[in-house]
Computed example of a mutant assay.
Amino acid sequence: MKKLMLIGMFIVLFSSMACGADCVRITATGNAEYPPILWRDKAEPQKLVGVSIELLQQAFGDLGITVEGKYVGNWARAQSTARDGSVDMLAGAFITEERKTYMDYVTPPFMMTPSVIFVMKGQAFPFSSWEDLVGLKGGTLINNSFGEKFDRFAAEKLSIEGVASIEQAFRKMAAGRNRYVVYERYQGLAISEVTGFRDKIEYLPNSVINEGLYFTFSKKSTCNTPDLRAHLARKVRKFTEQKLPDVLVGKYLKIWKAQHSPSASR
């Protein structure tokens, strides 16, 4: 019996060593305008922190692999670094066919993310389908995606301007240059709280677009191996069953608010 237990322990240890044999450090980046999932740390601006970084750290910690959240610029720039292999992973991305050409997605998604149509308070308009946005100018982040179906519809029928930050998109909407902003609900509300827009905006209740948020590996990363992808997939399934992402959302929302409160800026 002891011999079988030792053999089992050896197999587990060997598998873990083999799984991360050629990868000791993973650099992950992503959308820095995505609290509480991901944002630029105020104390160390070169770092990204949030739910997705901690999930990766917990997933790879038992393999002895260090995960670093790295700020490389805006969301468009982050995607570019995944394309050229400057980083190993994106710590949260929706699936698009174009992104599949330079990244491998790890399934299942680590969480579902609702996106909505934000408008200025008192300026809501009748909305029952995406067709109601036709003829109206909108705003969002540069190179942002809201799932293949909406992206295709938007490219064919809508006028949506991509800008560098959601605060900028809100400001353009407040100035009357755009009629609406499409963005993730929780992230948009979190950013609005610290940019002075929380009491000035609302979102259309019927406009929710639910999409899965996935971890991705750059196809050019040396850490992108079948074993590590399978390991992360197993961990993601375990984490979601335990509802760990939901627990971490609460934890990091408090950290985000503390970092961006008026007293923290003094």
Rank of each mutant, 00 (worst) to 15 (best):
residue 110 F to E: 10
residue 111 M to A: 14
residue 112 M to V: 12
residue 115 S to Y: 11
residue 116 V to A: 11
residue 117 I to C: 11
residue 118 F to N: 12
residue 119 V to T: 11
residue 120 M to N: 11
residue 120 M to I: 15
residue 122 G to M: 09
residue 124 A to I: 06
residue 124 A to L: 02
residue 125 F to L: 08
residue 126 P to I: 07
residue 127 F to Y: 13
residue 130 W to C: 12
residue 132 D to P: 11
residue 132 D to C: 09
residue 132 D to G: 10
residue 133 L to P: 07
residue 134 V to L: 05
residue 134 V to P: 03
residue 134 V to Q: 02
residue 135 G to H: 01
residue 137 K to A: 13
residue 142 I to V: 15
residue 142 I to R: 15
residue 144 N to P: 07
residue 147 G to L: 10
residue 147 G to T: 04
residue 149 K to T: 10
residue 150 F to K: 01
residue 151 D to V: 02
residue 152 R to E: 06
residue 153 F to V: 01
residue 156 E to G: 12
residue 156 E to C: 05
residue 157 K to R: 14
residue 160 I to S: 04
residue 160 I to N: 04
residue 161 E to F: 14
residue 163 V to F: 00
residue 164 A to W: 06
residue 164 A to Q: 15
residue 164 A to K: 13
residue 166 I to K: 10
residue 166 I to H: 02
residue 167 E to S: 07
residue 167 E to C: 03
residue 168 Q to S: 14
residue 169 A to V: 01
residue 170 F to Q: 05
residue 171 R to N: 04
residue 172 K to S: 09
residue 172 K to H: 06
residue 173 M to F: 00
residue 174 A to P: 01
residue 174 A to Y: 09
residue 174 A to E: 05
residue 174 A to V: 01
residue 175 A to I: 11
residue 176 G to S: 02
residue 178 N to K: 12
residue 180 Y to F: 13
residue 183 Y to A: 02
residue 183 Y to F: 14
residue 184 E to G: 10
residue 185 R to H: 11
residue 186 Y to H: 13
residue 187 Q to P: 01
residue 187 Q to E: 12
residue 187 Q to V: 08
residue 188 G to M: 02
residue 188 G to F: 01
residue 189 L to G: 01
residue 189 L to T: 08
residue 189 L to I: 11
residue 189 L to K: 07
residue 189 L to P: 06
residue 191 I to W: 00
residue 191 I to Y: 01
residue 192 S to Y: 08
residue 193 E to Y: 09
residue 195 T to A: 08
residue 195 T to S: 07
residue 195 T to V: 11
residue 195 T to D: 05
residue 195 T to I: 11
